[in-house]
């Protein structure tokens, strides 16, 4: 009786544990507790001097009302606005497409089932490092050599997109049934044959959805870059309207435009996928 019981792990209250990774869970729990505490503490250290809540709340409400219920343009025309949105879209598009192509090749080298162990490890580490630094910082880093503007923004976004997509793509590649790779290898197929005839057909829809997702992210980043790094586009207009002219109506309108565009992008991506790649919806 005693001997059989030794394999059973129990919690302090006598219940039988069914999870194996105790240490990991403990670390996660403590991290969450710590973060909650830090958030609460941080709020207590804010500078509340001169803040009159009774006045601040109604004023914020009034500002929000002007912003979102009475939107309008005053400093530039509709044509101009649409042109600026086009620039922002262009920035995001450029960074995403270039990023996806480069990431595809790097991901082939990073996937453990397609590459040698050391090459794959090296790429993974480098890419993890790039991802750990926020896009905005990369843009600013590139701004040192390229100057603030759209070049630095595209480079920074490209850099981060590559790192993000390499991880996503290589994980999709690794999911491919290794029997399929074995079958092709056993016919004498070369590495590129396997990539084009087994890996690509099996993962194409995943690659596409990851790229769309990244495009959405890049679009919002491009808006922010317009404001923060002078990359132009609708983000820059938003920055001018809010920080320079204090024109709440214009801020409201631009926000609506961005929102509308995000919805349109979402609709297009869903349509494209279900139309040309029904595989993901049927499986």
């Amino acid at each position: 009786m005693e001997a059989t019981a030794t394999y059973i792990k129990r919690k302090s209250n006598g219940q039988i544990t069914i999870k194996s990774g105790n240490k990991v869970e403990r670390v996660i729990r403590w991290t969450l507790i710590l973060l909650t505490l830090l958030t609460v503490v941080a709020f207590m250290f804010f500078n509340y001097a001169g803040l009159d809540l009774a006045k601040a709340i109604p004023e914020t409400a009034y500002n929000l009302k002007t912003m979102f219920l009475e939107p309008g343009l005053s400093h530039f025309s509709w044509g101009e606005a649409i042109y600026q949105v086009g620039i922002t879209l262009g920035l995001a598009f450029l960074a995403t497409i270039l990023g996806a192509v480069i990431a595809f090749f790097l991901a082939l080298m990073a996937a453990t089932n397609l590459s040698n162990r050391w090459v794959s490890k090296t790429i993974r580490v480098v890419v993890a490092f790039i991802r750990a630094v926020p896009t905005v910082l990369w843009v600013l880093i590139f701004a040192i050599s390229a100057g603030l503007g759209s070049e630095a923004a595209v480079l920074g976004m490209l850099f981060h997109s590559i790192a993000y997509l390499v991880k996503a793509f290589s994980e999709a590649f690794e999911e491919v049934d290794k029997g399929i790779l074995e079958a092709l290898r056993s016919t004498g197929a070369s590495w590129w044959h396997i990539v084009t005839h087994a890996i690509l057909p099996s993962t194409f829809t995943y690659l596409l959805s990851w790229t769309f997702l990244r495009f959405e992210i890049n679009f919002s980043v491009a808006v922010a870059m317009g404001a923060a790094a002078g990359a132009g586009g609708i983000g820059f207009e938003l920055f001018m309207a809010s920080g320079f002219y204090f024109d709440l109506r214009e801020v409201g309108l631009i926000t609506y435009m961005i929102l509308l565009l995000a919805i349109i992008l979402e609709i297009i991506s869903t349509r494209l996928k279900s139309r040309y790649f029904p595989a993901t919806s049927t499986n």
């Binding site: 049934d177 029997g179 399929i180 074995e182 079958a183 092709l184 016919t187 004498g188 197929a189 070369s190 590129w192 044959h193 084009t196 005839h197 087994a198 057909p201 099996s202 595989a279």
Partner: peptide, 28 residues
Amino acid sequence: HYNLVPRLSVIENVLHGRLGYKTTLQGV
């Protein structure tokens, strides 16, 4: 487990047997 590429057609899968005779470019 047959190890066919599930998303490709039967004929494409059969032709995979010829890849060993191809140069990389022909195959790709």
